[in-house]
Write a protein that binds this DNA or RNA. Structure first.
Length: 886
RNA sequence: GCGCUGUUAGCUCAGUUGGUUAGAGUAUCACCUUGACAUGGUGGGGGUCGCAGAUUCGAUUUCUGCACAGCGCACCA
């Protein structure tokens, strides 16, 4: 056992080095970016994870993809910035802290706003760093010196600036409007925070008497309890059933209120009874109709979801309990005349899943139309590109139908709305700085708006607020617009669209040039990973067990932009096995470095076929990887490296190089093999580094290299001169021949390792020479001895197994091992295959429109194919005749 | 209701401008511990690319329709 072998563990163990290298990179300042004006910038802002959260599989994937792009561009020589940070996540964080308070039997109201916020900040300090350290263990090469938080001083300043500017421009307004209200979270929600779900409900048919008549109008409703707030009944103007009643007055049952029957185009005569009870205070459509017809708004459901005074004896009951009791009463009094089952969509709070109650309340809104327009244009004219493109349509579709954004939340944790009200003169003043005096009347009797802003209001400023905005910083000028935003399709509306709108408005440019959208990581059954299902896999657990490189590689392979993927431990193991394979290939090289001379550079004459072949394959791989990375096809790029390392470098080149490496008698051949192996390995480590940063660094540092870290080595480029098509096709022929021999030996049950004779008939003189010059490859990898090369017209050996690969007839006189029946079967099957293919090729080539219309190269290819098949067929047919004669 | 995505080997998925006998991982079968690696090697079996049309010399790939699965959007009470 050599010394090297002792030094390098036989099995890949990431625990031995991942932490070490991360610390080395970070303390060496390799993650940090200063503005370098002479270099092209490449920048990414992290989608800030929630401050109270911990790393989940989605984060792991999102950040793996970002880190791959960042590391790749950094190696390419870009001035590379990856801006890290986290989000205060208003409603989510507040809910967490309230939950912990509940365990102490307290509510936030017991503490009061100030004390409560102290608790939240303490919470933030405690948990905020956890997820950042988890991102470190994943290998994320963020510029930690620039770490930000959406509620830090700079971000708070940016939020104020944006709010006040929009307010002064009239794009932010306050209004009594119907808004989604969560009775449990006790706050208003934006439309996006409401999830619609189809539920099985009922359609209750009620009769409302017409005043001064025996007639009754039958209405249908899914929410009878809102009838206390009814202030009208609407019908379609052309509905013959009701035309005579338009303008009449109805008596609202139970309540006894007089309400008008009116006509409105909104009503669909085909639905229900064609008559709609109108509750302007508790339904968005009714609210609109109410505005059109000047109906009164009667609020009968309180903010906590209980019935208000307007509900008479039902006041104080929960809305659903009220419904239950009211339906009973209506049934008993004959008002309810029919109950149908009815499926309908019901809105739920995306945070707590409580059924949302539309309520009229005073909230702050952003007018979206003028902001949305430029954001649509930026994508339509290609300044911002979605990857994959289909998400552009989803994005523009949403913006084209956007409604005003409710930005006020009745929470305590978040950016407080920078508006002060004067208790004396009633003036409302928005201000960038805190104020203590009413600017209008000078009164000191003022108070700040109690509400905070929607979390996404500040997230929307992330790409430029982290660069120092509203100051005109050199970071902004250099790194903004950022290069790419990497995120999941689930937050295109919440976040991506808002960043574009705010970026164009305040950053004075698009916030990013590309939006790279990925899917979700699901469990092995395709379900969303969730806490309630308990099916989540903790990425930290995977890192502990298998290493970050393994997790990263698993997350990127087979990953197609925009598509979900499933988590399988088998896939983790496959990625780990790949790491182990690379580890051992490198170990092999290090064990064979004896006599390695850094200054030795082989000449063309030193290279043998396998050298030229592997260098050519490497150059092609490098070009393909770069190309795929440019297209955001990270999975394809990773697959190409995997295939190269395993199926070409390890399976073939290392095996072919062994004789030279083991032979201590000759110098130049050994050194040439060392050189090529070293060159290819060192450069392949560079290609793989963005995907598997730790293992590549660990190995790179051990193999001959220049520089302090693979992380800042140059990305392989411009190696076209290594491309060698002749070497590739020669090697292909040899490899095919080796495979054919192995196949036959296995079929015949030849003992592995035991040499057997092979005779190759090669018609082409050049190819025969190539085989002759590289006989050792066949002897070594196909266990052939003796090996005879001859022309195609040479006498065929008796009693031999036969195969035909491109231009080569292969004969194996496996004495005593050939089962005539089995061999006949094998050859017959092969012959049939060839017949089918020849038939297909002939048919194609005899089709005149094919030869006339298809490109010449395609036709030529088809002809060559046919010729090849026919040659092979001739060999097979001859052997079959021979076998038959035995 | 509108829209999007998926349907390829037992399972999970690639397949990038239409053109070799459609690939990988995993599983499975046989053989092999040879001096990088059994987390390995060699070989094998396994798919009429969801269905039906259309365009084309040629379709897994483009278009249309349908089926199934999943998702997003949506003010039908």
């Amino acid at each position: 056992m050599s010394e090297t072998e002792n030094m390098i563990p036989k099995v890949y163990d990431p625990k031995l080095f991942e932490k070490k290298w991360y610390e080395y990179w970070e303390t060496s300042g390799l993650f940090h970016a200063e503005v370098e004006k002479d270099k092209k910038p490449f920048s990414i802002v992290i989608p800030p994870p929630n401050v109270t959260g911990q790393l989940h599989m989605g984060h792991a994937m999102d950040n793996t993809l970002q880190d791959i792009l960042i590391r790749w561009r950094r190696m390419q020589g870009y001035n590379t910035l990856w801006m890290p940070g986290c989000d205060h996540a208003g409603i989510a964080t507040q809910a967490k802290v309230e939950e912990s308070l509940r365990e102490e039997g307290l509510s936030r109201y017991d503490l009061g706003r100030e004390k409560f916020l102290e608790r939240v900040w303490a919470w933030k300090e405690k948990y905020g760093s956890r997820i950042m350290s988890q991102l470190r263990s994943l290998g994320s090469s963020c510029d930690w010196a620039r770490e930000r938080f959406t509620m830090d001083e700079g971000c708070s300043r940016a939020v104020r600036e944006v709010f006040v500017s929009l307010y002064e421009e009239g794009l932010i307004y306050q209004g009594m409007r119907i808004t989604n209200w969560c009775p449990r979270c006790n706050t208003a929600l934006s439309d996006l925070e409401v999830e619609h779900e189809t539920e099985q409900g009922h359609l209750w048919h009620l009769v409302y008497p017409v005043e001064g008549s025996d007639e009754k109008v039958e209405i249908a409703t899914t929410r009878p309890e809102t009838m206390f707030g009814d202030t009208g009944v609407a019908v379609h103007p052309d509905d013959e059933r009701y035309k005579h009643l338009i303008g009449k007055t109805l008596i609202l049952p139970v309540v006894g209120r007089r309400i008008p029957l009116f006509a409105d185009e909104y009503v669909d005569p085909k639905f229900g009874t064609g008559a709609v009870k109108v509750t302007p205070a508790h339904d968005p459509n009714d609210f609109e109709m109410g505005n059109r017809h000047n109906l009164e708004q009667v609020k009968v459901i309180e903010n906590d979801g209980t019935m208000g005074e307007g509900a008479g004896k039902y006041a104080g009951l929960d809305r659903y309990e009220c419904r239950k009791q009211l339906v009973k009463e209506l049934e008993e009094t004959g008002v309810l005349i029919k109950t149908e089952n009815h499926e309908h969509a019901v809105g739920h709070c995306s945070r707590c899943h409580t059924t949302v109650e539309p309520l009229v309340s005073k909230q702050w809104f952003v007018k979206m139309e003028s902001l949305a327009k430029p954001a649509i244009e930026a994508v339509n004219d290609g300044r911002i590109k979605f990857v994959p493109e289909r998400f552009a349509k989803i994005y523009t579709g949403w913006l084209e139908n956007i409604r005003d954004w409710c930005i006020s939340r009745q929470l305590w944790w978040g950016h407080r709305i920078p508006v002060w009200y004067c208790d004396d003169c009633g003036e409302a003043s928005a201000s960038r700085e805190d104020i203590t005096v009413c600017p209008k009347c000078g009164s000191k009797n003022i108070h700040q708006d109690e509400d905070v802003l929607d979390t996404w209001f500040s997230s929307g400023l992330w790409p430029f607020e982290t660069m120092g905005w509203p100051e005109d910083t050199e970071e902004l000028r250099h790194f903004y617009p950022t290069s790419v935003l990497v995120t999941g399709y689930d937050i295109i509306f919440f976040w991506v669209a808002r960043m574009v709108m705010q970026g164009l408005k305040f950053g004075k440019d698009i916030p990013f040039r590309h939006v790279f959208i990925h899917g979700l990581v699901r469990d092995s059954q395709g379900r969303k990973m969730s806490k309630s299902l308990g099916n989540g896999i903790d990425p930290v657990e995977v890192i502990d067990k298998y290493g970050a490189d393994t997790l990263r590689f698993m997350l990127v392979t087979g990953n197609t932009p925009g598509n979900d993927m499933r988590f399988y431990w088998e896939r983790v193991e496959s990625a780990r096995n790949f790491a182990n394979k690379l580890w051992n290939a490198s170990r092999f090289m290090l064990m064979n470095l004896e006599g390695f001379d850094k200054s030795f550079v082989p000449t063309q004459d030193d290279f043998e076929l396998s050298d030229r072949w592997i260098l050519s394959r490497y150059a092609k791989t490098a070009a393909g990887v770069t190309e795929n990375l440019e297209k955001f096809e990270l999975g394809e790029a990773a697959r190409a490296i995997y295939e190269f390392i395993w199926s070409e470098l390890c399976d073939w080149y290392i095996e072919l190089a062994k004789p030279r490496l083991y032979d201590k008698e000759t110098e130049r051949p050994r050194r040439t093999a060392q050189y090529v192996l070293g060159y290819v390995l060192e450069h392949t480590l560079r290609l793989l580094h963005p995907f598997m940063p730790f293992i590549t660094e660990e190995i790179w540092q051990r193999v001959p290299h220049e520089g302090k870290s693979v992380m800042v080595s140059a990305w392989p480029t411009g190696e076209e001169e290594k491309l060698d098509e002749a070497a590739e096709s020669s090697m292909t022929a040899i490899m095919e021949t080796i495979k054919a021999i192995r196949n036959m030996r296995a079929e015949a049950g030849a003992q592995p390792g035991k040499k057997s004779e092979a005779i190759l008939h090669i018609s082409d003189g050049n190819l025969r020479e190539v085989f002759a010059a590289n006989e050792g490859y066949l002897r070594g990898l196909a266990d052939t001895e003796p090996l005879t090369l001859c022309g195609a017209d040479a006498a065929k050996p008796e009693n031999a197994m036969t195969a035909a690969v491109g231009g080569v007839g292969v004969y194996l006189p496996l004495k005593g091992l050939i089962d005539v029946e089995k061999e006949t079967q094998r050859l017959t099957k092969e012959l049939e295959n060839l017949d089918r293919e020849i038939e297909r090729a002939k048919k194609k080539l005899s089709n005149e429109s094919f030869t006339a219309k298809a490109p010449a190269a395609v036709v030529e290819k088809e002809r060559a194919k046919q010729k090849d098949y026919e040659e092979k067929r001739a060999v097979m047919a001859e052997r079959l005749r021979h076998l038959a004669s035995l």
